[in-house]
Amino acid sequence: MIQKRPFFITFLAPAVLTAVILAAAIFEVLQYSVREFVPGSLNVGGLTLENFARINRPIYWWVLADTFFISLLTAVFSLLASYPVAYALVRAKKDWVRSALVSLSITPLFTGEIVRTFSWMLTLGTDGFINSMLRKLGLIDMPIQLMYTRFGVVVALVQFSMPVMIILLATAIAHVDRDCERAAANLGASPSAVFWRVTLPLTLPGILSGIVVVFAWTMSAFSTPQLIGGGKILMISNLAYLQGFSVLNLPFAATLSLIALVCALGSLALMKTITGRIERRLAVN
């Protein structure tokens, strides 16, 4: 096989290299997680399982649960916000409407996470865009607390995840056979019935993969909850950061990272099973 494809190894080399380095890094995290913490020192002590035992405290379970909750909320709201945009993007009759929507929904991908988070801080702050607008309109007297809230974090995360969600949904919507929709209308389905009974079910694979991707992506979110949550909203990666770089307890940070990784992979596997079952029931593909 290798003789038949002489470039095979050359082409594979970068992927293999990346995989090896990643595996080494994960192994390093793994071995840190079973070391003793030596207070006041970056060096670690002997082998121990104490770090894992320490996890079993309400505060850590709470952060883990919150991470799940925020990821799920983000995935759901990202879906709700993205579907209409993706639909308009695919179905708009005018070319310029379509290109405008494409650029509007894709450009956020090309601004860094920090820049986008900072813009959200400007928007959500007590003197931020939203509060000053509401105050000028006379709707509120006192600024509402948006920064350092779960709401603010989710709003920012939703916006970050929308480009990916829109791309996945638009692909699914573009693949819907227009004749199927015409057939439904021909059989007496009103425009809304056509959407709920034909278009939406046919785009379900895209919806499911969008939710899975955004969920997994948000599970590992760091700078958004860090900056907008400001320590009041902790996601698992913020907790790991806190332990590793404030308390300098690298072994425990490693344990948390490992648990975050396992949880992300576990929930991905779970979602894959669920979505696989739904897809098989609908047999869209």
């Binding site: 199927c180 057939a183 019935a193 047999a283």
Partner: peptide, 29 residues
Amino acid sequence: EPYRRDIGMVFQSYALFPHMNVHDNIAFG
């Protein structure tokens, strides 16, 4: 509107609903 016309149509590509079985396709209208 098309959905108020009571006109049956068979499309060149059939346009059957892939997410429904034979019975539900026929029952749709």
